[in-house]
């Protein structure tokens, strides 16, 4: 009764996702050479990285087809903890009158 129902990702899908990722990499390096004004260069670069990583997580790491949602929850919990970690640290470091001396 343990009939295998693992999702088999078609070869065409994998190649297509790979091609999109390569295209986005070329795009982000191209934007790097454009030297956009300060906040926008970071927004574009990180935005493209988030799109790329979402593609990897969904289609290479198979979360898109996951029939057990628990793995998705575990992964998102990791991102929540990461944002708490960085966010709370920045609440300290962003509002200091003096940066730690020596650095």
């Amino acid at each position: 009764m343990s009939e295998q129902h693992h999702h088999i990702v078609p070869v065409k899908t994998l190649i297509t996702i790979g091609a999109i990722l390569v295209f986005l990499t070329i795009l982000t390096v191209f934007f790097g050479y454009l030297h956009l004004p300060s906040p926008y260069n970071a927004i574009v670069a990180i935005g493209i990285a988030i799109i790329k990583s979402s593609l990897v997580v969904m289609f290479f790491m198979n979360l898109y087809w996951e029939h057990r949602r628990f793995n998705i929850m575990v992964f998102l919990a990791g991102l929540v903890f990461l944002s708490i970690f960085i966010g709370l640290t920045m609440l300290d470091t962003m509002y200091r009158s003096h940066i730690v001396p020596g650095f």
């Binding site: 790097g32 970071a42 990897v56 790491m61």
Partner: peptide, 17 residues
């Protein structure tokens, strides 16, 4: 794929500032 994922973020953070 996770190792790939980390590098996808290292590229903009280190090379494309």
């Amino acid at each position: 794929h996770f190792v790939d994922l980390i590098w996808i973020f290292l590229l903009p953070l280190l090379y494309l500032v």
